[in-house]
Computed example of a mutant assay.
Amino acid sequence: MFSKFNKVCVYGGTGKYGSYHMKKMIEYGTNVVCCVSKNKYIDKIDGINVYQSLREFDGEVDTAIFFVPAQNVLEAFSDAIENGVKNIVIITEHVPVHDSLKMLKLAKSKGVNILGPNCPGVIHTHENFKVGIMPEKYFKPGNVAIISRSGTLMYETAKHLSDGPGVSIALGLGGDPIVGTNVAEGFEILKGLGYEKVLLIGEIGGEDEIRGVEYAIKIGFSPENIVAFFAGRHAPEGKRMGHAGAIIEGERGKISFKESYLKQLGVRMVNFPWEVRNAWKS
């Protein structure tokens, strides 16, 4: 799904934010082959050709990353999948819920994988592959995979992991209420790549982490190889905390319930980011 062989198109790569991260991705080793932008006055940036639509590009693209405004994400998504893209990373936050639902429906019918919206992207350290906004200096190659709803907590825990077992791949699922890849699907991706040790970074609200870990164990992950850390331990009920999807609604959305349930499954919990460094047995 994500490797050094992927050919990447950056949507919104002429803007200040998109151009900065496109350059960082190229420097890391990602094979960026083109850029799509509504800016009619720029035809090349950092050596990458810029097009109005992906259909204008005479080449193959299998992966796209979006830095476009929220109201333009659905249009960019349609352009990408109509031109053969199978993996899409949506950095943009606050995408209209109806647009996200339309994208999920289209993705399932076309066999398209989505990370996000409102996600930091993906980094594969052994492949020098980054389609996202994470600071790569905090991700030293190793054997622990990360599945995270949070971007900043992904970076912080990766920094601590880099002082220990290191990071193999990190998947940022996103913080919007509707996201393309859930925790269970994240574990499925890691299973296909052959990774066994997983750090799950969750947050308040919903049951995605619970259902994800149950599925992970079902498909062969050992509970003792899964470590979980939750953000929002002291969040008041009914109050949204940071991410649009992070809101406690009922008992099962509380951190205390999730931690207790996952402990019963055999998963180890950590209370602080720095504890992940020594969370796995050798």
Score class of each variant (00 low, 15 high):
G180H: 13
V213S: 01
E207Y: 06
G186M: 15
G194W: 12
I210Q: 07
H234G: 00
E203T: 05
I204N: 08
F221M: 04
L173Q: 13
T181F: 12
E237F: 03
V227H: 00
G186N: 15
R211Y: 01
P165D: 10
E251I: 10
L161I: 07
L171C: 11
I219P: 05
P223S: 00
I178T: 14
R233A: 04
L193I: 14
N182E: 10
D176M: 07
E185C: 13
I169T: 12
I204T: 08
L161G: 02
H243N: 06
G232A: 04
L171H: 12
K218I: 01
N182C: 15
K239G: 02
G250Q: 03
A231I: 05
S162W: 09
E249Q: 13
K159P: 01
M241Y: 11
L190P: 15
D163E: 15
V227N: 00
G180R: 14
V167L: 05
K191L: 14
A235P: 03
G172M: 02
G166H: 12
G245Q: 04
D176W: 03
G175L: 07
N225P: 00
I217H: 05
V198Y: 06
G175Y: 08
H234N: 11
H234E: 03
A246P: 12
F229W: 04
G232K: 01
G220L: 03
V227R: 00
T157A: 10
S162P: 07
G174S: 08
I169S: 05
G175C: 11
E188W: 14
Y195V: 11
K191S: 14
L161P: 04
V167H: 06
I178F: 06
E188T: 15
F230D: 00
I169N: 05
V167P: 01
F187I: 07
H234V: 15
K159C: 09
G175S: 09
I247V: 15
L193H: 10
E251M: 08
